[in-house]
């Protein structure tokens, strides 16, 4: 069973991303939304953790929330795929469950 995890807080504010990444099973997906998009920033402290996670988990970030925070798409860590809201809906539909790390 595959789960889509959504993380909506910056990893520099809360530890929900770390909890999520350490518990998410291989083959599942994590979508960064709202302030969660800060985890996708290239060169930031969380980059090594994100790259490590990308080995077994599919990582996505919500494009409109990047844009709302002035983060250009070329500043996103390689291996993190950018999706729009339609892509968010597709991810929710193609995984068996959606779990929000609130």
């Amino acid at each position: 069973m595959s789960i889509l995890h959504t993380v909506n807080k910056s990893p520099y504010e809360k530890n929900s991303l770390d909890s999520c990444l350490s518990l998410a099973k291989e083959g599942s997906a994590v979508l960064l939304i709202e302030d969660g998009v800060y985890a996708a920033l290239k060169g930031a402290a969380k980059e090594p953790r994100m790259k490590e996670a990308a080995q077994k988990i599919k990582l996505y970030v919500l494009g409109p929330d990047l844009k709302a925070r002035g983060m250009a798409e070329d500043r996103v860590i390689e291996g993190v795929e950018i999706v729009d809201y339609a892509g968010f809906v597709d991810l929710a539909a193609t995984h068996d469950k959606v779990n929000a790390w609130l």
Partner: peptide
Amino acid sequence: VNEGPYQHQAADSAYQFTKAALEKGH
């Protein structure tokens, strides 16, 4: 939806997701 309007982005995110799902025919 667990959060009120203008307080947190959740109300906006929920609306955008709902709208996108409807547009995709769900």
